[in-house]
Nucleic acid binder design. Sequence first.
DNA 1: AATGAATGAGACTTCATTCAT
DNA 2: TATGAATGAAGTCTCATTCAT
Lengths: 200, 200, 200, 200
Amino acid sequence: MEKTSSEQTIIEAALKVFSTKGYAETRMADIAKEAKLSYGLIYHYFENKEKLFDAIVGNWWNAIYEEIERLKNSPVSTREKLVGIVKFMLNAYNEMPELMSIFIAEVSRGYIYHSNPQRRENILKYLKVCEDIIREGQARGALRTDLRPKYLTYIFIGSVDTFLSVMVLGNEKLTKARETRIIDSVTSVFLHGAEAEEAH
Amino acid sequence: MEKTSSEQTIIEAALKVFSTKGYAETRMADIAKEAKLSYGLIYHYFENKEKLFDAIVGNWWNAIYEEIERLKNSPVSTREKLVGIVKFMLNAYNEMPELMSIFIAEVSRGYIYHSNPQRRENILKYLKVCEDIIREGQARGALRTDLRPKYLTYIFIGSVDTFLSVMVLGNEKLTKARETRIIDSVTSVFLHGAEAEEAH
Amino acid sequence: MEKTSSEQTIIEAALKVFSTKGYAETRMADIAKEAKLSYGLIYHYFENKEKLFDAIVGNWWNAIYEEIERLKNSPVSTREKLVGIVKFMLNAYNEMPELMSIFIAEVSRGYIYHSNPQRRENILKYLKVCEDIIREGQARGALRTDLRPKYLTYIFIGSVDTFLSVMVLGNEKLTKARETRIIDSVTSVFLHGAEAEEAH
Amino acid sequence: MEKTSSEQTIIEAALKVFSTKGYAETRMADIAKEAKLSYGLIYHYFENKEKLFDAIVGNWWNAIYEEIERLKNSPVSTREKLVGIVKFMLNAYNEMPELMSIFIAEVSRGYIYHSNPQRRENILKYLKVCEDIIREGQARGALRTDLRPKYLTYIFIGSVDTFLSVMVLGNEKLTKARETRIIDSVTSVFLHGAEAEEAH
DNA sequence: AATGAATGAGACTTCATTCAT
DNA sequence: TATGAATGAAGTCTCATTCAT
């Protein structure tokens, strides 16, 4: 399962180029140049451009599922699970901003057209796993039950997504303080609302 | 200012094709075929593919700005303004699902790779106008002031966006009942939070 | 035979554009725009681009032939006839620099490829008429007879051409003094040579 | 520095097609067909049609400069230097008639419309180097000093050019005898004039 | 006479992919 | 493993020309 050095080099180069130019504007030659390898070699390891892209994104999806699944099964409060999701995504942005850029631009928005049914599945599965946590939160009395779990999920995930989008767009640096502020804001509003106390 | 019949036909055909296949996969020939016109004529009216796309999206942005600006200046509560935004977007989805599909899928994506600085401007202006409403809500004591208006904006807009995304993805029909449910969910969670009452 | 106003406008516009961009790079739309007329109208008067070009150049050829023929038949010395040719061409450059530009760029050099046999004929006829004068000069003892009249013609015409070329290239202004200098130089060298007297 | 076989094949094919049809009428597909290679490969070696053309012409300019520079610095009489120029050009016509055809037809034309400033430079440099020889001829007392060196250059170069033009136009064969005759005619007229002896 | 919308063949160029070495 | 020359389908766009009005 250990990837050869060249294969890894290609993946890293592809990640960089895809995140900079987008899938459609990325040329196999760009990747080869970035990797300082011949483009013939890319085809030695990956069937074609799409498969290369999917290889990159596939890894990422697995990491997401694994983490959210882990959170889901961990014996902590719903709030902590939600915080865990935000934390994980922000951390991912910090450590792999390129991957996050692709995630936001190509996956989270661009999936719409993807003829490839696998891609549609991925995003739906992502929403599904989050929904499980929400549903459990309702079941254990932590979350309102008058709203559909699906809807709550959209609201929560949408909030997180937009933060990531804005950061990707602005190519922003994420300090520790900022990370805390974002986690606080998202979970606080999601759980308690944005209405002023005195307005109650 | 009145557009010729052919120009309108081209815009409608382009809208349809762009929303179905995405910008990158759309062929000028597809648009011409859809419009039942020669593709030479497209270039008679639009400089190139990108300009045609921008013409379509530009109109849409203007409609958004106009509406949100109108809401901002209308003498209603912050809550009603937020409801107005959600209503407007859902209504737009209902009446122009193709436009909404493009909005969701292409706009933020094209922005990330910022081939065109105009696109960056558009989305930033969109967030800006929404932020004005949020900020005003804080000023008049309707919204919490312990969180940055920018962040509140991301959370609110993100929620709406994700609903639209999911509907576009699922090619879903928006009934009146569903519309009400979504509006309720989004504003209710945004204002009061998702936490169960007894959890307070 | 009187040309309508529009026809004349088109010819003048075409002259300007052809001389600025060259035949290949000239667009019918450019001519229409320059003439401030619709391009449909160009086709009302001229069958196509090539015919329009030929109409312009054709007039010019006729003027050249007429003048050289006149010189040929005028009762002056060979020297004066040669001076007359140079004078005529310089004068033409002065009064119709655009026409001269076309003549140099498209006719005198570019004719090589012209599939149109008419064009080939024109240039050959031009050389032929000049050769007549040279031949007559030899016959009347004014010019050396040890060299082929054809060759003398090439040498003379070539000299004139290059002056015109350089002026066209440099977009140069032709003052009266300069005109005299060029006429002197060309005829003097052609008749007496460029060798220094003491070198004899 | 060694060109690959295919690159050389492309250059030769391009030379042939350009010289036959002219730059404007040459299709990349024609070149590919002539070279019996795919047209994609042309773009593997040359950025575009213009660059391919310039590559061909650039080589030729370098050969010209080198030769004229060599002549300029060689310890022979001015007459012999002028003979050298004519010889070189006639020889070039003999060995590379296609290149000469392009030289005659396209170079000044491309220059006039100055799409490319490099072209302007080339032709000006060409005239400049020839002028150096003329100027030196005046300095060493071999040529008249009452005429501008620039003008003498135009006259000489113009004569040579026209011979080449006519040969290219007529697709003429250059025999050894003819070559001698042309060299004699051009240099003899340039140095001693075309006037009959008895006319002095 | 005049307009300019409409046509569509065909040009240049791109680029994913193959394959001989 | 690795290279990069070679391929060619397919895309965007141009522009001379036609034609209904």
